[in-house]
Design a protein around this nucleic acid. Structure first.
Lengths: 137, 137
DNA sequence: ATAAATCCTATAAAAAAGATAGACTAATTT
DNA sequence: AAATTAGTCTATCTTTTTTATAGGATTTAT
């Protein structure tokens, strides 16, 4: 399961995407609208900003905004940033690979093979679906 | 990511499946073979037993064994038993559903829709692949 | 009886997740 | 220039989950 952090990030990004025309959006507005602890959300938005996904403006009229059009922000990127690996096992992770310590040889391990397929089918969706694809219909 | 518990369970089940002809297998043998803490593994095997996946025999000549042929044990079942939900969000989980508290309406939530697709593609593999499919090639 | 093995429950230690606090910086308004 | 607004940064705290261990109870074979 995705952590609350990642779930909140998605909902916040959705709100930002649905209000791109309104300039910078307040943290407090997102928190209220999406029912998220404001202080926790603060940290999340900051992390998204430091990763280049969001921009911000201080002072009156300030807030957060998307740095790119929603269509260009892949869901996989958000998950990896806040939650880490998408794969079910370290030994099949593309971005956070770790050797398996319980099997003799990954090349002949059937678990490795199947979990690799799960990873592929998941990534096929998450790499190709963007923020634009998860907006309210 | 799958928890260590679930990862260990898979490796233990693989060992049991690869030695079905040898009668009951000792916890200690599995632990040594797969490099798993024996006491931790004990708990895991017990849980698999209580779920009806494994059988056991006490005393000399005892140990654990599979209750069904490897082909009939779906990977999804093991994961759900030890790790809980397979879905990435509670609101798209078939077995552990919980209402989303951050969106207005799941029926129009785009995140819900996409994550439902991820769940489907993952389950298509994990429900149809069995213990037999993850044995060493 | 004895030894071998699982059964069971409790607890502890470590790590991760979730949440909060408060002082600081920057931009805007008056 | 002062006051206000809003994000920045870092630290800490609490709770939950994960991982692991301990030890006595029970069952079975010899």
């Amino acid at each position: 399961m995705l952590s609350k952090k990642t779930q909140y990030a998605f909902h916040a990004l959705i709100h930002l995407a649905e209000n791109v025309d309104k300039g910078p959006i307040l943290i407090s507005e997102i928190a209220q609208e999406k029912n998220i602890s404001i202080k926790f959300l603060e940290n999340i938005l900051l992390e998204l900003k430091n990763a280049g996904i969001l921009g911000s403006k201080k002072g009156k009229g300030g807030g957060y905004y998307l740095m790119r059009p929603p269509k260009e922000i892949a869901l996989a990127k958000i998950i990896r940033l806040l939650d880490g690996p998408i794969a079910l096992l370290p030994c099949v992770s593309l971005n956070y690979y770790e050797r398996c310590e319980n099997c003799r040889d990954e090349a002949t391990c059937g678990l490795n093979e199947v979990m690799g397929k799960v990873r592929d089918s998941t990534l096929k969706i998450l790499e190709n679906k963007s923020l634009k694809d998860i907006l309210t219909r």
